[in-house]
Amino acid sequence: MPRNFVDENTVKLTVNDKIYIDVELYTGEKFTMLEPHRLFPVSGLMKYISLLDEEGNEQMIIRDIERLMPESKEALLNCLNERYMIPKITRLIKRTEKFEIWMWTVDTDRGEFTFEIINSYQSIKILYDGRILIKDGNDNRYEIPDLYALDKRSIKLILPDV
């Protein structure tokens, strides 16, 4: 089945229910309660957004959020921000280890939080663009956008794990 790539200039998106959006095409065709999914949630946050219906069937793909009309772009980004929660770590407050389970207390853009890392070798990944992705013991994700932009103490605490 061919994918339905929509022309970003001819589509109007409006938030329906926090994580769902309604779509109106220039042809007048309307879709309601579509759920946006990033096809590249790690490597391309603003590209290739798949819109799924309530059954999980893909209705269309938006190639580039930046090309949408401002109101549609805002609606889609609001939806995506609700759905995707990858707190950005701004400071490592405390790092303790017991029996190879690491406990990190961090400051993030969503507030302070404490989580466990069961196996630092598998749960902390450094990407080639310098970002560090972390998965905690409950499969929640966190991101350090730039390790060297953190304070010296945080860098010193994190460096052995990456």
């Binding site: 229910d17 990033r38 949630p41 609700e82 995707y84 929660m85 990858i86 707190p87 929640n140």
Partner: peptide
């Protein structure tokens, strides 16, 4: 309703309205 790194516990009322009750991480 599982999302990415977080989830909502939602109730759908008899008249089809979705109500978000609480939000939590995967824990």
């Amino acid at each position: 309703k599982r999302m990415y790194g977080n989830a909502l516990f939602r109730a759908k009322t008899n008249d089809g309205k979705n109500v978000d009750l609480i939000r939590f991480t995967y824990s």
